[in-house]
Design a protein around this nucleic acid. Structure first.
Lengths: 185, 185
DNA sequence: AACACCATGTAAGCAGTTACATGATTAG
DNA sequence: CTAATCATGTAACTGCTTACATGGTGTT
């Protein structure tokens, strides 16, 4: 049910193709609602059938043809109603690393996994920082908040940043604990 | 595939019934691998069929009968192998609130949702703190880490705490941004 | 009297994943 | 020459959610 609204929300940024949306759901939206291309193509089909988005066929010469999707007024209204209601279900996290860590008996293997996660988190923070700069576009946060009509994308970006920072802090903590365990055998 | 190992990891704590596991997956494990009772009953069935857990029927007098499950040596071995491999898929988060926030056009509604999340996060932190005290059992962290044979449960607990603290910090940030927006209409 | 807890399970349906297919274009 | 990008889609499968059912016990 929520994927539907995630797609509608993504289309608030403007017209997009399924392929373009699959990039968005693999990068920025992946931070709170990941989806594979196949999910998106199916969802867009449904949304078009229900009149919440409008599809426009675009013929291209040196590229495969594509369909561009836009929110309809009905889609906008449906999304608005959804956004006004409090969430029904709590945040769900699925993290394989934590299962492994729960069961771990080899501190060295654990350490390696944590290091990898840290590298990954740092990379993600860097990419977030660049998105932030693109949004702010030289302005201060204050100026940006005054001038932009939508705050949503900025707030979800902050969530991503906050999450990865927390991740890093936790990783440091885990490394310290593991080191102590190894030190005493 | 991962639910399987989450269940095996949960059984490292000792024999448990499907019902007991459903509590665990609704509270502590929910922080990194939520599962409904129905998922668990099916998974336990499969694990028993594959010889990774052993089922023992327990007749009770003033309660419904139950089946208690224990890890077999094969199950332990399978879990050990899983825990030694690096994770295949990145952390997946599904958070309805962030979809709503991405689309939000009513700052007052947004503020209410954030307040609710904060209340919820504080509650969760409180419960984590109590779990921590039960684990430490009067000892310092150092002493606990020296004496306990498994660190896993403590590390995943720290992850939960870290996550909710980050959540709270982010909520504060969002409130500040929203306040600023409202102040200027 | 009404509700929550204990303890399991079936059935149906929806959501998400994986594999495969197509075929030209562009970058290394 | 190889791999990645663009752009879509079908099919088969696995995983997850929701509704319902049972029926005694303990709590407010």
């Amino acid at each position: 049910m929520s994927l539907k609204y995630a797609v509608l929300a993504a289309l608030l940024e403007g017209e997009a193709s399924g392929y373009e949306l699959s990039k968005v759901f693999d990068i920025s939206f992946a931070n709170f609602w990941p989806a594979t291309p196949q999910q998106l193509y199916r969802e867009l089909e449904r949304l078009a059938r229900d009149g919440l988005v409008e599809a426009r066929f675009v013929q291209q010469e040196r590229r495969p043809n594509k369909r561009m999707f836009t929110l309809t007024e009905a889609g906008r209204e449906d999304l608005r109603a959804f956004a006004a209601e409090p969430p029904r279900r709590p945040t769900a996290i699925r993290d394989e690393l934590l299962i492994k860590l729960q069961a771990v008996d080899d501190p060295e293997a654990a350490r390696a996994m944590i290091e990898e996660r840290m590298t990954w988190a740092r990379g993600k923070l860097g990419r977030y920082e660049r998105v932030r700069e693109r949004l702010l576009d030289g302005r201060t946060e204050d100026a940006y908040l005054r001038e932009s009509d939508r705050v949503g994308p900025y707030l979800t970006l902050l969530a991503g940043i906050s999450f990865e920072e927390g991740n890093l802090r936790w990783c440091e903590r885990v490394l310290a604990v593991l080191k102590q365990r190894v030190a005493q055998g």
